[in-house]
Write a protein that binds this DNA or RNA. Sequence first.
DNA 1: ATTGAATGATCCATATATAGTCCATATGGT
DNA 2: ACCATATGGACTATATATGGATCATTCAAT
Lengths: 112, 112
Amino acid sequence: MPKSITRTYSRYNRDAVALLGLLIREARNERKLTAQELADRAGISRGLLQRIEKGNLKCEIGAVFEVATIVGVKLFDVNESAMTKYLHQTKEKLTLLPKYVRKKTKTVRDDF
Amino acid sequence: MPKSITRTYSRYNRDAVALLGLLIREARNERKLTAQELADRAGISRGLLQRIEKGNLKCEIGAVFEVATIVGVKLFDVNESAMTKYLHQTKEKLTLLPKYVRKKTKTVRDDF
DNA sequence: ATTGAATGATCCATATATAGTCCATATGGT
DNA sequence: ACCATATGGACTATATATGGATCATTCAAT
């Protein structure tokens, strides 16, 4: 990040991540886990868990997903095997499609 | 991150993020956007978009969600207003619940 | 009411994610 | 086949997210 960047996020995504954080918080309480306990299980610090539960948009997606999974918050509504299967399907599908996006609007031949 | 950390991620989450990346890639191709164009629209670098499309788990969640939204990949199956509404509902619900998780198993009185 | 634990908030040091650049390769259109 | 360009990987510098510690506050159980 050479040049100091201030990102803008859409309201939808701010809400989405905030909601995800709240759902995690709710699920953690339901399961009677302290912040420290959940953080330990997820292999992250309590501070990071705090930021996740607050809906901080700059947390790494892997950490957020791990925490969510541990407390049972479903991200996509698919189980593990279905997820893997869907992943492979999508991967295969992509190999069949064009790999590059071509923008060069074909040069109009007006050289006559 | 003082102490060098090597995180472990569940297979489910690795697959989930990988899938998300592929879906983004697919949607980008469908919309005939080059990586640079999409990166510009999302306010991120092309390199970061590459990592996102590859399913890198250490990308910030805000950037991933922004890109997904731009190309039309739905994270949750709710529209904007429903999302905001749901967010508020969950927020309210949380205020009614206990705020701390108590672990101290009540000390058994055996002092007789 | 008391009290101990859980949480919120701040600060610092450092590991690292990111932006930006360059170059090599692959690819689709001609 | 040719060619213009999109993509994939490096690499570097720097902004910053994170871990860890500390302190204040708030709550729940007694």
